[in-house]
């Protein structure tokens, strides 16, 4: 679980689990808050790359971190948001407060950029 949290400068990257339900939510928020409170975190990024399932417990996790970061003057974003997660974001209104990082960069563009 610990390796799911990575701090790069002022960014806290959280790799979300495969199934984000109440069971997993409880573990994530405690650890996330330890990082947020212990280091100078200005941005929290939730990475949904591995996530295949999310219910309303996941919304609680993101909302809670959003409120915390908002209070501290920071921001919350999400990356690798698949169709299903996007639908949950839409339905709950989360997309209004959480910036979704889009990956429009195609492999071709990526290669050109680094050539």
């Amino acid at each position: 679980m610990e390796e799911a949290f990575k701090v790069i400068k002022t960014y806290l990257m959280i790799k979300m689990p495969k199934e984000l339900d109440h069971h997993q939510a409880m573990r994530i928020k405690d650890t996330a808050d330890k990082y947020i409170e212990g280091k100078d975190i200005e941005h929290v990024i939730f990475d949904f790359e591995d996530t295949e399932f999310m219910d309303s417990s996941g919304i609680g996790v993101i909302m809670g971190r959003y409120q915390k970061m908002n209070y501290l003057g920071g921001e919350v974003a999400a990356i690798h948001v698949n169709k299903r997660i996007r639908r949950i974001f839409q339905l709950s209104g989360l997309y209004k407060i959480v910036h979704i990082i889009e990956e429009n960069v195609t492999e071709q563009e990526h290669r050109e950029e680094f050539s």
Partner: peptide, 14 residues
């Protein structure tokens, strides 16, 4: 206190 979003029933209905 448990960060419940209050959306459980709304999700079931949706």
């Amino acid at each position: 206190d448990l960060e419940r979003s209050g959306m459980g029933f709304a999700f079931m209905e949706a």
